[in-house]
Amino acid sequence: MSENSLAIRKFSDLANPTRFLALAARVLPWFAGLTVLLFAAGLYLSFTTEGDYQQGETVRIMYVHVPAAWLSMMCYSVMAVSALGTLVWRHPLADVAARAAAPIGASFTFLALVTGSLWGKPMWGTWWVWDARLTSVFVLFLMYLGLMALNRAMDEPGKAAKVSAVLILVGFVNIPIIKFSVEWWNTLHQPASVLRLGGSAIDPEFLRPLLVMAVAFTMLFFTLHIAAMRNEIWRRRVTSMRRQAARSAGREV
């Protein structure tokens, strides 16, 4: 068997929800433990490193603001891949993944907006401006809320899956807009300084806590996402078992 078909088989093995549940039970304690350790290290570094010579203490807001903002976009990208999984491969877990990710993504986007605002007031002198970066992230937040509302509004998971998958893919156009907004338009928000051509423009003193916090937030996302997917599979099982019970009760009468 070629390596490629082996990889595909592994991927389709995961399509079995029972296998996914077994895997989730195995990895969740490790992921949760690792997340706690990373946050302990990240928070320690965040508060022990020096303040910025211009920004002073407020530079520490960066260690939650930037990871939350990265995660808000990564979460939407995970949802977009899941949407492709629903529409193209009809992977049974793809819709579960997209649905479970939406509230988590909304929370991270909310955090990015609030911490950004709390950083903006002392540094820019304003809580909010309607510049391209801030506005496009706000649109992302609204899209998360819209997708959550849509998922709740439709009873039939199969139908909701297709509609929200299409909507997720249409909304994905916003992700490159967020990423490049600081280059395409004249914004109050600063341009990228960590991931950029020519290397990072941040001093290692700030980069270290930032990267540890970014990994911690990423692990938090995966832990919560796997747990939320497991909950969603259970929720669907409960619904189908109740339906089955009602049907067999109807037959007995």
């Binding site: 807001i61 955090l111 911490t115 709390l118």
Partner: peptide, 20 residues
């Protein structure tokens, strides 16, 4: 400035805990 930092970390902690 410290108040802005503490407010940021406080809101982040509350949001993450609520999610968990």
């Amino acid at each position: 400035h410290t108040a802005y930092v503490l407010a940021s970390y406080g809101i982040a902690a509350v949001t993450v805990l609520a999610l968990v």
